[in-house]
Design a protein around this nucleic acid. Structure first.
Lengths: 202, 202
DNA sequence: ACCGAACCGTAACGTACGGTACGGTCATAT
DNA sequence: ATATGACCGTACCGTACGTTACGGTTCGGT
């Protein structure tokens, strides 16, 4: 991935965020990236290839949220879960993510799988690892890690992503994300925590 | 709303579900509905009007899930919540809803608001009514009905809608919906129920 | 100095689609 | 019987966009 290539993809992303998918014409990309259309086609094949490359590139930047596998006690678990939750919330509420998910949904056949693999399923695998470790440490109890993760996913994301995708003006700043993450983890541990925590939440 | 009009909107919906938004050309609609393009433009103004009308029409069909306000005890509450949950799950997992949400997301400026108003916010208002009644009856405890509803929303929907929107092949039959609804309500009541229910779930 | 590759800017091409126009048909009303 | 109007099918128009082609420029290698 050369630097010039990344500049082009960054231009695609910027256009997507600012003007929406409809305005993302090859001409607009070429002008915005100060490159010729011929170069775009030589590098990316066609419009679909350019979009695919952009989605992949952005997805590769989102990777984050590994947790510390050492000494997993209740506090470390909570902290790791909150880290996952806050990171995930900041991703899905970012303008970039919203714009990219919009185009991926518009071309679910070709792009949806990429976004799913790098988003929902990537975080699922990482989080399930944490959950299984936590279960081994008798910190949580569940039968099915996948189901436990899906509940966590729901408690964290709630209605945020669909509202943003559907155009609801909706700003959520860092403090709100931190609060949301804490609440979601609190609720998750109330449901799955092996140590009895008060069921009251919200 | 005349019958012929509905037939046209039904054709739009069918095209949307079968072929996707990209194949939804005015010519295709006219052919599929066995009407002329001129009629389409006379009736609906332009393509956007046709889409808007279709979204509105479908939204008007989704209204459901009023609950029985009489004698709200723990059993009736659980039953009503499960009814909401199952209804909501069946809606968002239907091919029609997926297709319609896809186009609405693709045109979030014009269509997203309609879908939000008739989906997320409509069910929110109805469910908050139930939750407030339940709180009056000392069946649940929360400070903010909106927040409680959003948690319910997350526990019910989890990752289903985003996965379907992004093209994940994902069938969920009536039995699975019923199971999911029961689990979600169980978890919700574990978090918000005033009567102490076992926090164990999943 | 010169070559070739890569690239830029722009023009051009083909096509597909939104929107309009028009002739023909059928039903209803007078 | 005839007129009116709604509607169908199709042809047509203008435009926008994906894609290709081409002339000019820059730049590293020899």
């Amino acid at each position: 991935m050369t630097e010039r290539r990344e500049a082009v993809l960054a231009a695609v992303l910027a256009l997507l965020v600012e003007k929406g998918a409809a305005a993302l014409t090859m001409t607009a990309v070429a002008r915005s990236a100060s490159c010729s259309k011929e170069t775009l086609y030589k590098w990316f094949g066609d419009r679909d290839g350019l979009l695919t490359e952009t989605v992949r590139w952005q997805a590769s930047k989102v990777r984050a949220g590994a947790y510390d596998r050492q000494h997993l006690d209740a506090g470390a678990l909570r902290e790791s879960l909150e880290g996952f939750a806050a990171n995930w919330l900041s991703v899905i509420s970012s303008e970039t993510s919203v714009a990219l998910n919009r185009v991926a949904i518009g071309q679910a056949e070709t792009l949806g799988g990429i976004v799913l693999a790098n988003g929902r399923f990537a975080i699922g695998e990482r989080l399930k690892g944490l959950l299984l470790d936590a279960r081994n440490a008798r910190l949580v109890a569940f039968d099915d890690a996948e189901e436990a993760f899906r509940t966590f996913f729901g408690l964290v994301g709630r209605d945020i992503q669909i509202r943003l995708l559907l155009g609801d003006r909706f700003t959520i700043d860092g403090a709100a994300i931190a609060d949301d993450a804490r609440r979601a983890v609190q609720q998750f541990l109330a449901l799955y925590g092996a140590t009895k925590t008060p069921a009251q939440a919200g």
